[in-house]
Design a protein around this nucleic acid. Structure first.
Ligand SMILES: [Mn+2]
Ligand SMILES: [Mn+2]
Ligand SMILES: [Zn+2]
Ligand SMILES: [Zn+2]
Lengths: 148, 148
DNA sequence: TTCTTATTGCGACCGAGTCGCAACACGCGC
DNA sequence: GCGCGTGTTGCGACTCGGTCGCAATAAGAA
């Protein structure tokens, strides 16, 4: 069996280590895929890419790892308006939340960071006495290019 | 075959009529279920309730009708954080959008109307030149009773 | 190195949602 | 009220995203 390629442990790997969570070959492969992703990936895309690193990774391991990362609050799960089928998309959670806009005509996904969004969440926590762990704002409509 | 029970045509039924969309028995059953719902229903709950009005309604007709109502912008589709399985929930779209909060411990769903949310949407339309047709803000966390 | 325990691959499974098709019924024009 | 064309329906088969139980395996603490 080939050595797992020595790679600088990414942030995700470190964050799991800090929490005392066991690190394995398949996990390293999946984490690196998520960490180096340049767009929102669904589970089957993550699987395919992870397999180019570790041939033997199984579909269920991908789902189990995504479940782990969700529970740890390290990734977000998105619908992106279910533009293509019923699947979900995943992305690393970074400092500030962002809004996702999906164009219903061309399918383009754009992102937007907003101070107002932060205020809205604060208002919610205050007025509703609700402790927010995840907040997902997804919008569907027409992007600047497709709108007329 | 029994006459479809004569019922005052609800708002949804009227809105479809205005748009010149054909009205049928199964549709009337499904619309009335959605219109009289007191909580967020998923497709199988809608089916079950619709069948108490019209025994013969089929699962696929429910999905087709939900698709129609979505395309017409008359209902919203919700994840409610997928607290139970992967299904979606539906509710009539009324005047002002509202936010959904799902308690990850007790499962309670609460709703909240916010002026800030409206401003946020306006800001988005202005700053991103994006024409919003649907906006879904869903929040997961702990409700006032479960938080400590 | 040993030992415990978490994790994995596998295969079978489940449930949500879709689709093609032939039968049906809505509602328009007569 | 009576046809007729077209939109809608029920049905059954299917796809696809995601889950689960289990025996084999590998982490990592001691
Ligand atoms: Mn994003
Ligand atoms: Mn969803
Ligand atoms: Zn577009
Ligand atoms: Zn609660």
């Amino acid at each position: 069996m080939p050595l797992p390629q020595t790679q600088i442990p990414g942030r995700l790997q470190m964050q799991l280590a800090e929490r005392g969570i066991r690190m394995t070959g398949p996990r390293r492969a999946i984490l690196s895929v998520i960490e180096t992703a340049t767009k929102h990936l669904d589970a089957s895309q993550i699987l395919r890419k992870a397999r180019t690193v570790d041939e033997s990774v199984d579909r269920s391991t991908v789902y189990r790892t995504l479940g782990l990362l969700k529970r740890q609050g390290l990734i977000d799960e998105l619908d992106l308006m279910h533009l293509n089928g019923e699947g979900h998309y995943y992305e690393r959670k970074l400092g500030r939340d962002h809004i996702h806009m999906a164009c219903l005509r061309c399918g383009k996904i754009s992102e937007f960071v907003s101070r107002t969004f932060e205020s809205l969440k604060n208002q919610l926590e205050r007025d509703c006495h609700f402790h927010i762990l995840v907040a997902r704002l997804e919008v569907g409509g027409y992007c600047s290019a497709c709108r007329r």
